[in-house]
């Protein structure tokens, strides 16, 4: 039951993109086509879950026992950056087809604040390991849901005539605002 609550809360009520404002850069950057949005979601899910597990273990086994919590930011970002590199190298060797699909998105992920954000949130919320994994997967799903919905909307936006000043990013932001408004309907669910 607890896990279901975590999932509903992370996917709908506190959606990582539309209500927490994490991962806005890829949300605006790679949402022009549904297919790239799906690819990005795959890459983010993969790295997010791995990174959350690794940073959780580092926090509990290294930072907490030695009382060096102030090194959290610096150690987490290093771990995430090297993890992304590692994933890239392994994927290239083990599964070239998956690498083809996710490859271009991987370098972008290091500076995706959703990854570091979720890693830090997991620690702040004081989850245990299993809850952290569920939380990470749920957040990745929430990210994917928002991204794919938004990409679908943007594909339609291409065909509509809009005032010149609003073209491109401004209209995308306004549409994202309306999407966020729709997600506000879920508040109070959990």
């Amino acid at each position: 039951m607890e896990y279901i609550l975590i999932i509903i809360s992370a996917v709908f009520v506190h959606n990582i993109v539309l209500s927490q404002f994490l991962g806005i850069c890829p949300f605006l950057g790679v949402s022009k086509r549904i297919s790239t949005a799906v690819g990005m979601t795959g890459a983010v899910t993969f790295v997010l879950v791995l990174a959350t597990i690794v940073t959780y273990l580092i926090q509990k086994n290294i930072l907490d026992p030695f009382n060096i919590g102030y090194l959290q930011t610096i150690s987490f970002i290093l771990v995430i950056a090297s993890l992304v590199q590692l994933v890239e190298i392994i994927l290239k060797k083990v599964s070239p087809s998956l690498y083809q699909a996710l490859g271009v998105f991987l370098p972008l992920i290091t500076t995706n604040c959703a990854i570091l954000g979720v890693a830090i949130l997991t620690i702040q919320k004081d989850f245990n390991l299993m809850e952290s994994v569920v939380f990470a997967i749920a957040n990745a799903l929430g990210f994917g849901l928002a991204l794919v919905l938004f990409a679908g909307l943007r594909e339609h936006l291409e065909l509509i005539e809009i005032p010149k000043g609003l073209k491109g990013t401004p209209i995308a932001l306004i549409v994202a605002g309306i999407l966020a408004m729709a997600f506000m309907g879920f508040s109070g669910l959990v």
Binding site: L166, L173, A176, A180
Partner: peptide
Amino acid sequence: LAPGAFIALGYLIALIN
């Protein structure tokens, strides 16, 4: 709230453009 952030920034960028 959250939606206002997107909408306000959207119109602000449109104005600057």
